[in-house]
Simulated assay, not measured.
Amino acid sequence: MEHWLTTIPPIAVYLLVAVLVGIESLGIPIPGETILVFAAILSSRHELAVSPHAVAIAGILGAVIGDSIGYYVGHRWGTRLFAWLERRFPKHVNDDLIAYAEHEFVRWGIYAVFFGRFIAILRIFAGPLSGSLHMPYPKFLAANVAGAVCWAGGTTYLVYYLGTVAENYLKGFSYVGLAVAVLFGLLGSTLLRRKVERQVEAFAAQRKGTDPAS
């Protein structure tokens, strides 16, 4: 494993981060955040020559460009896009989730674009929903860039720092150190995702006029 990791060209890591984060931002439910965290972990292993700064930049560019393309697609095709996502990814996208996301974006506007970047099940809708709701693009872009910088940059440097500390204090257990970094890096987003999932269920029950506890 150690030998295999040292053979990964840093440019391949950066491109993978940018492409996969960009695809997720288009509205396709793939684990872009997991790829970003993994790349940040690699950057904490100094023998691999992967730069945390380049990882952060790749994540920011992927998020901004992907969201902007998603905005255009949502603005152009809107309802048809969401119907296609429901058919293609039924385990990740459904009518209740789309309705909840639309409700939040209408309610909070550009703030939903910014804070939605930190929540996996809302992150994929930021661009397409903003476009379909005809949010002014300059406002969307400002919130999109700010969210991408805080999310991609913050995630990268947090995981990098945790990975470096873990490696320094657990030199004889390097993979334990990596596991610690992964757990800390994903814990916050996991808790947020579960909270939003409960909110989606409550919102769906309210729409249908039923008790969410039933």
Rank of each mutant, 00 (worst) to 15 (best):
Met1Glu: 14
Trp4Tyr: 14
Ala12Ser: 12
Val17Thr: 02
Ala18His: 02
Ala18Leu: 14
Val19Trp: 04
Val19Ser: 08
Leu20Phe: 05
Val21Trp: 00
Leu26Cys: 01
Gly27Trp: 06
Gly27Pro: 06
Gly27Asp: 02
Ile28Gly: 01
Pro31Ile: 02
Gly32Phe: 03
Ile35Gly: 00
Val37Ser: 00
Phe38Val: 10
Ala39Gln: 03
Ala39Pro: 01
Ile41Val: 13
Leu42Tyr: 07
Arg45Ile: 14
His46Gly: 15
Glu47Val: 10
Leu48Ile: 00
Ser51Val: 02
His53Ser: 11
Gly59Trp: 03
Gly62Ile: 01
Val64Glu: 05
Asp67Phe: 04
Ile69Pro: 03
Tyr72Gly: 12
Tyr72Ala: 13
His75Cys: 08
Arg76Val: 10
Trp77Arg: 11
Trp77Asp: 01
Gly78Glu: 05
Gly78Lys: 09
Gly78Ser: 12
Gly78Pro: 05
Arg80Ser: 11
Phe82Asn: 00
Phe82Ser: 05
Ala83Glu: 10
Trp84Ile: 07
Pro90Trp: 07
Lys91Ala: 14
Lys91Ile: 14
His92Ala: 13
His92Ser: 12
Asp95Ile: 09
Asp96Met: 02
Leu97Phe: 07
Ala99Trp: 06
Tyr100Gly: 00
Tyr100Phe: 13
Tyr100Met: 05
Tyr100Ser: 02
Glu102Ser: 12
Val106His: 15
Trp108Lys: 15
Gly109Cys: 05
Gly109Gln: 04
Tyr111Gln: 13
Ala112His: 03
Ala112Trp: 02
Phe114Ala: 08
Phe115Gly: 06
Phe115Ser: 13
Gly116Pro: 06
Phe118Val: 02
Phe118Tyr: 06
Phe118Ile: 03
Phe118Asn: 01
Ile121Tyr: 03
Leu122Lys: 05
Leu122Phe: 01
Gly127Phe: 04
Gly127Ile: 01
Pro128Met: 03
Pro128Ser: 00
Leu129Ile: 12
Ser130Ile: 00
Ser132Lys: 08
Leu133Cys: 09
Pro136Ser: 09
Pro138Asn: 07
Pro138Thr: 08
Leu141Pro: 05
Ala146Cys: 15
Ala148Glu: 04
Val149Gly: 05
Val149Leu: 11
Cys150Asp: 08
Ala152Gln: 03
Tyr157Pro: 00
Leu158Ile: 09
Leu158Met: 10
Leu158His: 02
Val159Tyr: 06
Tyr160Trp: 14
Thr164His: 15
Val165Gln: 10
Val165Pro: 11
Ala166Asp: 05
Glu167Gln: 13
Asn168Ile: 08
Leu170Gln: 10
Leu170Asp: 02
Leu170Pro: 12
Gly172Phe: 09
Gly172Thr: 08
Ser174Thr: 15
Ser174Leu: 11
Tyr175Arg: 12
Tyr175Asn: 15
Val176Arg: 11
Gly177Val: 00
Leu178Asn: 11
Ala179Thr: 13
Val180Phe: 01
Val182His: 01
Phe184Ile: 11
Phe184Ala: 10
Gly185Pro: 04
Leu186Asn: 06
Leu187Ala: 13
Leu187Asp: 08
Leu187Glu: 10
Ser189Gly: 09
Thr190Gln: 14
Thr190Asp: 10
Leu192Asp: 02
Arg193Pro: 09
Arg193Leu: 12
Lys195His: 14
Lys195Asn: 12
Val196Pro: 02
Val196Met: 09
Glu197Met: 11
Gln199Cys: 13
Val200Leu: 06
Ala202His: 10
Ala205Glu: 04
Gln206Gly: 12
Gln206Lys: 13
Arg207Cys: 09
Thr210Asn: 09
